[in-house]
Amino acid sequence: MNERMTSYSLLVLDDEPQIVKAMTRVLARMPSEWLDAPCDVRGFSDPHEALASLGERSYDLVISDLRMPLMNGMEFLRQSLDLQPDAMRIVISGHADLPTVMAAINDVQVFRFIDKPWNDTELQMGVAQALRNCMLLRENKRLADVVRVQRSTISKHEQALRDLEADSPGITHVERDETGAIFLDESEFDRD
């Protein structure tokens, strides 16, 4: 299948540095049976620095707070969607009112909404599922590409056959007898 992952790349953003650190600790001790590779977490408390990092390297998962003084979390996630549409997004917030949750799902395609204070196990499970989902989508895409390439190879082959047939009709369906000799239908010669 695909090449084995060495580590998953995660971005964590919260205006509170201690929260970033606490979450990084939880993700670092992710049970190995839930995920086939460790999490490489980059934490930010400044949304602008986080966006800059999103422009530089590829992430599998972006986790963000909503209520931040420098930038609204929803706005950050919207920009992250533009920068890295393939990455998964998780919101972790203590203010989960319905309009916010709906906007998070409909506008920025959030995969999970985790309440604050979080339950460590729930956070780990949510992250593991998001990462597996991310891998699944990537794998899907890769396979779809392979199929497309193969399909175009096949159609090239078919085109060549069709040209040949137009030039010498019957040549693409040569019949042989059991000894391998080409079977010629004599009635066809008589027509000329």
Partner: peptide, 14 residues
């Protein structure tokens, strides 16, 4: 109050 509770609780788990 919620913010410190978040990380203190999580840190205790860690």
């Amino acid at each position: 109050i919620n913010n410190p509770i978040c990380y203190v609780q999580s840190n205790l788990g860690t």
